[in-house]
Amino acid sequence: MTLQIKNVSKQFSNKIAVKDLTIDLSPGIYGLLGPNGAGKSTLFKMLSTIETPSKGEILWKGNNIAKNPGKLRKELGYLPQDFGVYPNMNAIEFLDYMAALKGLPKDFARKRINELLEALNLSQHRKRLLGTYSGGMKQRIGIAQALLNDPKLLIVDEPTVGLDPEERMRFQNLLSNLSTNSVIILSTHIVSDVEAIASKILLMNHGEILFKENPQKLITSVNGKTWEVILSSQAEVSMLKKEFLISRIYHEPNGIHVRIICDRLPHQNARTINASLEDAYLYKIHSKGV
């Protein structure tokens, strides 16, 4: 059960959103990281059969999804970043509708809907109109519809938006449980979410995958390149900013602590420190030239 992306490009008039991308994904959780405009959403749209590639092909279990999208759709769960719901329907009706769209047998679907609503703590609100739901509840309805058909390919774009920290943690656990049999691709700007659950990180910028490895390897790749220096004035900070990539600045009683990512000693008083995933992310994105 693999998802193969072969030399895929997507072009919109003059802009190339995804550039000659090749990658194979087997079951597991993949954290897709990248700045805004990196091409993540376009890639997701192509993987979820909403858009078709301008060049190349995407194969799911050997089938080209652009030529035969129906086969993937049966096993696809997709949670877009922005979505709405029908305000005049309740949760059961809306999920029934989604189940009908996904071609699920009605009785089984109803059983699974009830289980999902229970798991997502929405069962007491099942008969309430979706128009009265809060943002977090709507997000959970989105998660429920994505999990409705027991997806073998699950694509979730910023899934933890609107969830509180505890809900986020539990959602991460759910994804981990699903990952043994499914390919899960998760896009988020919350790097700690990725660090917690992703078996591999896909780092994307300018429509290209810059890095595909486990989080630890990404962190190791910037060992010895993360520095910290304590400065006494804002002017010194400004000077460093001009020359180096700064990942963090914070004020302490003993001075301004500046975290710098670079290949050489940035300041005579700087000392190397342990790198974080965020440091590694910044280093990789900026070393390719933003």
Binding site: L104, A119, D150, R170
Partner: peptide, 30 residues
């Protein structure tokens, strides 16, 4: 809180045939 319950999700898959009848019913309801 979310996923606070020990619930097993019933395995399910699309039965291969588009449930046109169910879909029409759902569309009429909407």
């Amino acid at each position: 809180t979310l996923f606070d319950k020990n619930i097993t999700l019933t395995p399910i898959s699309s039965n291969g045939n588009w449930q046109l009848f169910n879909l029409i019913k759902a569309e009429i309801l909407i």
